[in-house]
Design a protein around this nucleic acid. Sequence first.
DNA 1: TTGTACGCGTTATCAT
DNA 2: ATGATAACGCGTACAA
Lengths: 337, 337
Amino acid sequence: MAGGVTIRDVATAAQVSVATVSRALNGQANVTAEVRQRVLEAAKRLQYSPHAAARSLSSRRTHAIGVVLPDLYGEFFSELMRGIDQVAREHGMHLLVSSYHGHRDEQGMAMRAMRGRVDGLLVMSPYAALPASSDDIAPGLPVVLINSQYAGENFLSLGVANYEGARAMMAHLIARGYRRIAFIAGPEDNFDAYQRLRGYQDAMAELGVEEWVLPGAFDEASGHRAGRAVLVAKDRPEAVFAANDMMALGCLFAFSQAGVRVPDEIAVAGFDDIPLARFVYPGLTTMQVDISGLGASAARMLLARLSKQTPLPAPTPLLPQLVVRESSGRQSGSDSS
Amino acid sequence: MAGGVTIRDVATAAQVSVATVSRALNGQANVTAEVRQRVLEAAKRLQYSPHAAARSLSSRRTHAIGVVLPDLYGEFFSELMRGIDQVAREHGMHLLVSSYHGHRDEQGMAMRAMRGRVDGLLVMSPYAALPASSDDIAPGLPVVLINSQYAGENFLSLGVANYEGARAMMAHLIARGYRRIAFIAGPEDNFDAYQRLRGYQDAMAELGVEEWVLPGAFDEASGHRAGRAVLVAKDRPEAVFAANDMMALGCLFAFSQAGVRVPDEIAVAGFDDIPLARFVYPGLTTMQVDISGLGASAARMLLARLSKQTPLPAPTPLLPQLVVRESSGRQSGSDSS
DNA sequence: TTGTACGCGTTATCAT
DNA sequence: ATGATAACGCGTACAA
């Protein structure tokens, strides 16, 4: 029962006052080496570890940051968390995660439920609406928005340059000579998906070719469906650009399954560059997005804000990078590692 | 600045005492409907939300459970979190996640740093060693171990029946007539990987065929490597059984890339049934593991333990299920959804 | 039904 | 350098 050991027990054991114990354990200067030694020993012997809630209450710092996400599903989530976790642990911060499957109301709940639990908030709000009424969101808590359309409005925010990325991909496809390009869209109310769609649409408009948009939901299943829809269409497109890699893979497999050669008959492009995209055959051209880096940057912004060190770390949007992995014809060896 | 609103402010605004506010907000019976109404209004108007740390300190409950994982990488992590999150939110519990990349010492740190932050702990400890010295781990905190080899020793624990799953897969492959079966192993110190390996080895021993184990690390890259290693070997195996799907996919792509037909020339089997496995072509036979269900079950066990309702919910290990998706020859349509 | 007052475990401000 | 002691915000006996 090492659970109920308080700072008072340590004080008694070390024959000093609680104040001294606190000072010794928190590494303050005003403590004799000999006394500090005694305290440390007593603490270790009693398996003392400070009660976080009490400490927070008194010091007004929780050493935790809250992460509020729409859902905890898939590679995007895990990569984002990985990035956040990495810089959080570098700074000795804990992570309190919360998801809001419902919608905005739930998001608000999640955020206000974190009062007194965290020192700051990382919020991803890819939906159309505002994360919350603009001062309901920030009851004094520093907040960094991730991939929100309200970048730089009232809150610190950071995101992926989706529109620019989509334009870059379209430029690449067009440079390759493709004209009739279909697009597999993401969820309607997803802001990232919307930006990528706009990139596609603008490019097609400039090209003077009619757009061809298929519905999708950012998962393999909808990509697979879209792929099969394309196959049975009157005249197939020359290329398919999916709003993310999961759908691109689903589409790719639909093609492989039907015996359609990629990219010889139809080219397939994605967005995100998920790890698997690197090993899939046939190759998948995609826009590399450093999601883990996005999480890390967001966390760093928040922490900087907490330390009040930097006034405002430049909120540079992350620019995706084109990765071409089209493999025309069979190859025996390409990239290793 | 709605952050500093305390229960006292609400009390003043509603013209009652703090005790009454507390009772009204916590839905206790001893409160006049009229007074409760007044309190609720005041609380809403002031945007009051209780300070979690203070509440924890006083009530000795945090309404949070800690999740301690070896790392936050990949589909396994995200699925597990999804399951945990689901039942946690059903019970109004928050999630405090922590990873220990280093090793056991870091794990111990992570666990004891959660004192006063959580009501219970979910710990995944797939490594060979004990999660911690057996009473250092539990300073009064209820703990549920996930996929630990110390199932049912001192702590509640729950895991996947990896050995049985691997045996089932081997039985399937052998029934199909395969004899020379290679195995792509997982990380050396991973307990799940070890159990699956044992399942393979025992089956091969009973079959009287020499085993053929290739090293792997649970990622696509090592599967790809193993696949290519197999291709250049003197006489190729008839089937390859990978310790997880990621490696199976890497292997599969290596084969596709080399023009080797699956499963006609070599069959490929995996373990986990990750979502992508459903859409990959050629098809991948795998053992379906309900990871999200595993997380949910673990969370439920812990919560039951917290409510002290159930004495000990039967720690039934999760039995993986065989999923055959071998597709010999091209097909135009198979499963939909 | 409602109010007063104490305790939860720590940190920080005073004295000493 | 060290020791009392007052916050911190909330729950909850106990009293009224």
